[in-house]
Amino acid sequence: MAEHDDLVRRAAAREPDAVRELVGLLRPTIQLRAVRSLIRNMRGRRRSTAQEVEDLVQEVFLALFDDDARALRAWDPARLPLAAFVGVIADHEVASIFRSGRRRPYRDEEDGAVEPDTFASDGGGAEAIVECNETLSALLARLRAELSPKGLELFHALLVDEQPVEEVCASTGMTRDAVYAWKSRLGKLVRRLAAELRDSSRKVAAAQRSTS
């Protein structure tokens, strides 16, 4: 795992040869994360282009090198392989780009997250979300954009992979209390994002009703 330690250090210092080598090394990982996100976000609305892929990949690389390469320097070879570490950052960055509208693939459509009538009835709440894959995907996209790479890593470890807390403590070096605090924080964040998604959907539905 430590084989790229020196390369990352030199690239973070902006040695041109090291930067080029690192781009070649990480490009497949970042491109795959960008493409997965593009496919999930497009959902058949329109075609994506190779140019969009390149733009997203470049944005992720620039984010890695922002602020004197702070994100890149945060890599701990003892904890995660470089590609896995960068993959988590790429997921967050790409989701943030789509969420902020900097390169939203469906900018010409409504919120882009859910069908406007998903929450149209007064009773539309958590049940409506839990039962709808499209809405869950939209919520996941918002979560990826909102969470830090560390939060994303914990979301996957604790909830997606259902790792025991002890195992997560061992792999992250966090205390049990810190992990439980994160679990609670994740729950609150998801509920807030769900409420925002519901409000956004209802506003769009109301606007559509008023214009029809």
Binding site: R14, P28, S48, A50, V57
Partner: peptide, 26 residues
């Protein structure tokens, strides 16, 4: 194919150049 095709060497060069041109942000 367009999405999954590996970015070519020219694209990787453009990305590296953009990184080197960006400089520290703070």
């Amino acid at each position: 194919r367009a999405l999954f095709r590996p970015l070519d060497a020219a694209a990787e060069r453009r990305i590296a150049d953009a990184i080197l041109a960006s400089g520290p942000r703070v």
